[in-house]
Design a protein around this nucleic acid. Structure first.
Length: 644
RNA sequence: GCCCACGUAGCUCAGGCGGUAGAGCACUCCCUUGGUAAGGGAGAGGUCACUGGUUCGAGUCCAGUCGUGGGCACCA
């Protein structure tokens, strides 16, 4: 007698051991058909799994999260089978589930062509039509190794060698295709169908660049065609907010072949960039920072002192002058900052010193890493270094965290996560010091009652760090800010301060950035807002347009008046119809369009239209100025109507 | 850096088997002075990424270089 308890609390008794599929069938034919697998006492198993003793059972269908993963995993197998049918000389390796889909890595001399994806998809569809049953089989280790070697599947044999001895080795067969897999899988290939192969890529065996490169095929899979279509639609939408595309469309910035990884900021983009700096300056002034500026090019010896020359030489741009001196372009601002700190004696009375710098750093990033504004070789950091005593450290950390979160909120990022990375194996400094540093960082987070995730061993060799991760409007995460404690540089540069009793001590050095890279942050903002930058950031805030030449003078007056009030305003006096001008400026995502005809001239007013098409009627310049000022001051996640 | 793909006007893109380039938008000029997402006409604009090769002849074929895209690796 086997007693099966179902999620609703009801239970069913069976005279003999019973499979998941049989239980499902006993409940109803619809469920039987939908069954993909089961969770027996919480453990995922195949639908064919026989339950020998009393257990709780949850039947997994496409509606469950596990069901979706199962579909994706089985679709990866389906693809591997299709590939083996079409290209028998290919070896299979691994094929895991990833966000929204799956991939499978293949080893094959000839690379796949993009056209091959279509034929593989067709073959996959054929196998789905064949509705091949999928069956599980357990093999002992040696037998399995011999089996895969016999099939010419060397990679599979290597994978088996890595499976811990106590784990059973299971194989899944569907028709002529047998793959090593932990499972579970769907009961037959006919359960699949809503998939699409999306991209072709190279990938190193076991993710190690020293290994040979395999060929990866990515795909997406869903319970039904409707969800597949919806996903593809979402991809398209995401593409529309790509900052590279919007950067071109809105004339914000451009790249040029002879300056790879370097941004040419156009007037409108630079206006956005300037807003970021001016805003940060304001916030830092309020928060008691001083600002400095240090050289871009400094002698090799300085980089030897900082340790960059030894450790990061291959990522640094260097220059040699006629007198044979070797200089490097700064890859980080901290050595410059410490140099400023060291200028003149410092007393404990001077601390903390919060020293900010909008420094442009230059890093020779690998060519394959470059990506629009998100990963460049030359970028500006909103960097700051805080020199303080050990006692001040926790308080200073707290202030940094507070400032960061408040700044992110102003840019419309409410969802910010903290990651705390502590001591790595390879580190400098003794454990007592690390205890103190980690304690201060964690103490600051705890004192503020914030949640954080823990990244054990992920800290820098010179100190622990906190990372700030922002979630944008479409749910993507961006790591922007960092707060790091540094034991290394004060030591290397022999930075000191005079203590109260006349002795000398080492200051603690905190590195912090909020935006990280301003270039990248600008890119994130463009995508976050889909180009519809809120009023305070919009490069051009207002365009004033006339209906006929007769209103040109009033347009001119309106423009100068609003500029006097501090807004970024342009006139559009072109000899075009008003509909044409509105369309053009709307596509430029200008927040406020002011339309001026004879009526408005007479009343000394402007007719106001928002970029989302809302017509908010005519008003005079005082009323408009007030509205604009309010919206600018509010910052934050602002919709087109100025509503939060 | 590695794998695959791509590089034609400011932008988006056409250019079957090799015969020295084409559209739409944008731009300039003319007509039009029109009230909330494209009025009409004319014109100008390209060393087809670069270098070399094959060929009587190369955007078109081949090789290399540079750049871009998607991944992988990297991201102090």
């Amino acid at each position: 007698m086997v007693q099966i308890t179902l999620p609703d609390g009801s239970s069913k008794a069976f005279a003999q051991p019973v499979s998941v599929a049989e239980v499902a069938a006993s409940i109803g034919p619809g469920l039987a058909k939908a069954t993909l697998a089961g969770a027996v006492d919480g453990r995922l198993v195949d639908a064919s799994h026989r339950i020998e003793q009393d257990a709780s059972l949850r039947i997994i269908t496409a509606r469950d999260e596990e069901g979706l993963d199962l579909i994706r995993h089985s679709t990866a197998h389906l693809m591997a089978q299709a590939v083996k049918r079409l290209f028998p000389e290919t070896q299979v390796t691994i094929g895991p589930v990833i966000e929204n889909g799956f991939y499978y890595d293949f080893a094959r001399k000839e690379p796949f062509r993009p056209e091959d994806l279509e034929s593989i998809e067709r073959e996959m569809a054929r196998i789905v039509d064949e509705d091949l049953p999928v069956s599980r089989q357990v093999m002992d280790r040696d037998e399995a190794v011999a089996f895969f070697q016999g099939q010419g599947e060397e990679y599979k044999a290597r994978i088996i060698a890595d499976i811990p001895a106590e784990e059973t080795i299971s194989l899944y067969r569907q028709g002529d295709f047998i793959d090593l897999c932990r499972g579970p899988h769907i009961p037959s290939t006919g359960k699949l169908g809503a998939f699409k192969l999306t991209k072709l890529a190279g990938a190193y065996w076991r993710g190690d660049a020293r290994n040979e490169m395999l060929q990866r095929i990515y795909g997406t899979a869903w319970p039904d065609k409707k969800q597949l279509k919806a996903f593809l639609k979402r991809l398209e939408e995401a593409e529309k907010r790509d900052h590279r595309r919007l950067g071109k469309q809105l004339d914000l910035f451009r790249f040029q072949d002879d300056a790879p990884g370097a941004v040419f900021w156009l007037p409108r983009g630079w206006t956005l960039f300037r807003q970021l700096i001016e805003y940060m300056r304001e916030r830092q002034d309020e928060a008691g920072y001083v600002e400095v500026n240090t050289p871009d090019v400094m002698d090799r010896s300085l980089w030897e002192t900082s340790g960059h020359w030894q450790n990061y030489h291959e990522h640094m741009f260097t220059t040699q002058t006629e007198d044979e001196r070797v200089f490097a372009l700064k890859p980080m601002n901290c050595p410059g900052s410490v140099s400023v700190y060291k200028h003149g004696l410092k007393s404990y009375r001077d601390l903390p010193i919060r020293m900010a710098e909008f420094g442009k750093v230059h890093r020779y990033e690998p060519s394959g890493a470059l990506h629009g504004l998100m990963r460049v070789r030359h970028f500006t950091q909103d960097d700051a270094h805080i020199y303080c005593t050990e006692e001040q450290m926790e308080e200073e950390c707290r202030k940094v965290i507070e400032l960061n979160l408040s700044v992110y909120r102003d840019f419309g990022f409410e969802d910010v996560r903290l990651k705390f990375a502590d001591r790595p194996d390879n580190r400098i400094g003794d454990d007592a010091t690390w205890d103190k540093l980690e304690g201060a960082l964690k103490g600051a987070i705890d004192a503020m009652g914030l949640e954080y995730t823990h990244n054990p061993g992920e800290g820098a060799f010179y100190g622990p760090k906190i990372e700030f991760v922002l979630r944008d409007a479409i749910g993507r995460d961006w790591q922007c800010g960092t707060l790091q404690v540094d034991l290394n540089l004060p030591e290397r540069f022999d930075a000191t301060y005079r203590t109260a009793d006349g002795g000398e001590a080492r200051p603690v050095m905190l590195h912090r950035a909020l935006f990280g890279s301003l270039e990248r942050f600008a890119g994130i903002l463009i995508e976050h807002y889909s180009g519809n930058l809120p009023l305070w950031l919009a490069p051009v805030q207002v365009v004033v347009m006339n209906i006929t030449d007769a209103q040109a003078d009033w347009v001119g007056e309106v423009v100068s008046d609003l500029r006097r009030r501090g807004f970024r305003v342009e006139a559009d006096l072109r000899n075009e119809k008003i509909g044409y001008k509105i369309r053009g400026r709307t596509l430029e995502k200008i927040p406020y369009l002011l339309i001026v005809g004879d009526r408005e001239v007479e009343q000394r007013q402007v007719a106001v239209r928002l970029r989302d098409g809302t017509d908010i009627g005519a008003m005079d310049l005082d009323a408009l100025g007030e509205r604009l000022s309010g919206e600018v001051a509010r910052r934050g996640p602002i919709g087109d109507n100025g509503q939060r």
